[in-house]
Amino acid sequence: MLALDWLSVLVAVLRPDGAVMFANAALEQQLGMSRRTLEGADFSMCFTEPALLQTALAGARSQDFEALRYEAGLKRLHQEPLPVHVNVSPGQGDELVVELWPLEQQARQDREDRLLEQAQAHKELIRNLAHEIKNPLGGIRGAAQLLEMELQNPELTEYTEVIVHEADRLQALVDRLLAPHRHPHQVGDVNIHEVCERVRSLILVEHPQGLRVVRDYDTSIPEFRGDRAQLIQALLNIVQNAAQALAERIAAGDACITLRTRVARQVTFGRQRYRLALELHVIDNGPGVPDAIRDRIFYPLVSGRDGGSGLGLTLAQTFVQRHHGMIECESRPGRTDFRILIPLP
């Protein structure tokens, strides 16, 4: 039965009376209960409507059907019930097998697929667009400098200086767009808490007053192979984005950003199942991501504030994806949570 631990689907093997014989790791994680606690318990009591499962089990015992599928709500510790598809079928001997497919899991998988497809499309678009922009920019800047040398009226040189300045600003923007694709992956051993502490110290230098950065670390997380500089930049971009959203709370003196590290077990993302993964949360108590851009925050040049370049989160997602991970975001007024997932060895 231990082979069931590798499945992303939630599985329980029951006795004829509905008592749990075995629960796989995915079910343990969703219920927030250990396998040992679940063994011998009435599995129907894990649902918001126990009678539905009891009826299904009775039908399976009497062999009225080969398999029965219905929708139900799975209770979770300190969380809202999880909507699931339930499939009840006979197992070996008199055992009964209950398989649960979270409805939100399919929605999340679809969202992850869209993110990966978008990231690849944006990568190609950015590289092509940046190269198309670079050459004309160089010509514009050079022409402005030559024109400035020929001008006799100093007042007119103000116009050429504006051209040179704006060309340089656009060049810097293009360089930022191309940055993730120019530099090779410098792989070494990474301690995620050293990364967090580096970012924490940088953000507190920028905001010495009015902002509290809380550490909530799981110090048992092992080192892993990665590019330390890229991970620092990715996390710094997210934390700076949070700090900018907290401007009013910083002024009021009650802004808070939490850096939380955890180990996720038997987790699926990017259509792959991982035994262990790093979960790094950046949680702030700001106003939340505006509804108008919530589905587009990782798009390049999309920003929720005036004067923002809209590249910080795009670059962060790119750097994390280079570590076979991804970034997700859940946001509501008063709490925004950016969750970084990276596979662990």
Rank of each mutant, 00 (worst) to 15 (best):
N237Q: 07
A167T: 04
E206I: 07
D337E: 14
V98N: 04
I238V: 15
L4C: 05
E49S: 11
V302F: 01
P333M: 02
V289F: 00
H207P: 04
D284M: 01
P290S: 01
A3L: 04
P50F: 12
T48Y: 07
P50K: 12
Q54C: 03
K75S: 04
Q105E: 12
I250Y: 03
V282G: 01
R108I: 07
H85Q: 12
A252K: 13
D94W: 05
R265P: 00
K75W: 05
D113M: 06
R271C: 06
A3C: 05
V11T: 14
H193Y: 10
E150S: 10
H183F: 13
S34R: 05
Q186P: 04
L38Y: 06
R200H: 08
Q317L: 12
R275E: 07
Y274D: 11
E223I: 13
A234G: 04
L344T: 12
D113P: 03
P345F: 03
R335I: 07
L311S: 09
G226Y: 01
C46Y: 07
L115E: 11
H181I: 04
E150C: 05
D254F: 08
N191L: 02
D94P: 02
R176N: 10
G310T: 07
I133W: 04
Q106M: 08
V267M: 10
H78I: 07
A255K: 01
V190N: 10
N153Y: 12
Q106Y: 04
Q106D: 11
S220F: 01
V164Q: 00
A23Q: 07
T37Q: 13
L100C: 05
A252T: 01
R332P: 07
I283R: 00
H323V: 03
G226C: 03
I140E: 04
V302N: 08
R35M: 00
L173I: 04
R212Y: 09
V289R: 10
E132I: 11
A119P: 05
E194T: 12
I140G: 02
A107N: 05
L280Q: 13
D113A: 05
V98C: 02
D110M: 12
L103G: 08
E206Q: 13
T261I: 12
R271E: 15
E166P: 09
A60R: 06
E80L: 11
R275Y: 04
P136Q: 03
D337M: 02
L53E: 06
A107W: 01
L202I: 09
W101R: 06
G73A: 11
M45V: 14
F22R: 02
P290N: 06
D17S: 11
E330F: 07
L280P: 09
Q92T: 09
F224H: 10
V289E: 05
L156E: 15
H78E: 15
G307F: 15
E112Y: 04
E39L: 08
D110Q: 14
A179R: 13
G310Y: 02
P208W: 15
R294D: 01
L7D: 11
A292S: 14
G210A: 09
L276N: 13
E279S: 11
G139F: 13
V88T: 00
